[in-house]
């Protein structure tokens, strides 16, 4: 099936199996390895990318569903000022350990702050509830997001 979509702000036209997972399309066909497979069933959030600005699980998206959509992975997002802010705050708050979940958390943070630039603690917890982390116990990731919302005032 012919699939036309925007990937990290570039127009793409490809011919693929419409059932192929967006996750594999990004990793295998485009070499975008920031997108991780942690479970393949929408539970862990390691494969989160932005679709039209919103966080989505790329393991749950068949290629046929991205026609006309704008897909942004961390490879695209990491060029932005918002990314730089999240990076700095995650570093300062100690939000990173093994790092396998981290790209998904970065994308979920962007989606959350984009919708709600000044979230409460509860809203942050709910906003990140689609991302599993086994190392940090979450509190230091939540701190990182709080810091980004505070320091990044105006960015979102």
């Amino acid at each position: 099936m012919k699939i036309e979509f925007t990937l990290n702000n570039e127009f793409k036209s490809i011919n693929v199996d419409p059932a192929q997972r967006l996750l594999d399309l990004l990793r295998e066909d485009f070499g975008l390895t920031s997108v991780k497979e942690g479970c393949g069933e929408g539970e862990c959030g390691a494969c989160i990318v932005l679709m039209d600005g919103r966080a989505v699980n790329s393991c749950l998206i068949p290629a046929g569903n991205i026609i006309g959509k704008s897909i942004v992975t961390l490879e695209g997002f990491r060029k932005t000022a918002r990314y730089k802010m999240i990076e700095k705050c995650f570093l300062d708050a100690g939000s990173v350990q093994c790092g396998f979940c981290t790209p998904g958390f970065v994308m979920a943070t962007e989606s959350l702050l984009n919708e709600n630039p000044h979230p409460t603690d509860e809203e942050i917890k709910a906003g990140l509830s689609g991302n599993l982390c086994r190392c940090t116990g979450y509190n230091m990731i939540i701190d990182g997001v709080k810091l980004a919302a505070k320091r990044g005032n105006g960015l979102w």
Binding site: S34, I86, E87, L91, V96, G99, V106
Partner: peptide, 22 residues
Amino acid sequence: KPIQRVDGPAKISGEARYIGDM
């Protein structure tokens, strides 16, 4: 006194390569 963890930036940016990414 804490310092910035050395493997942090590559992990946050998604550039760190795990075995499945190699």
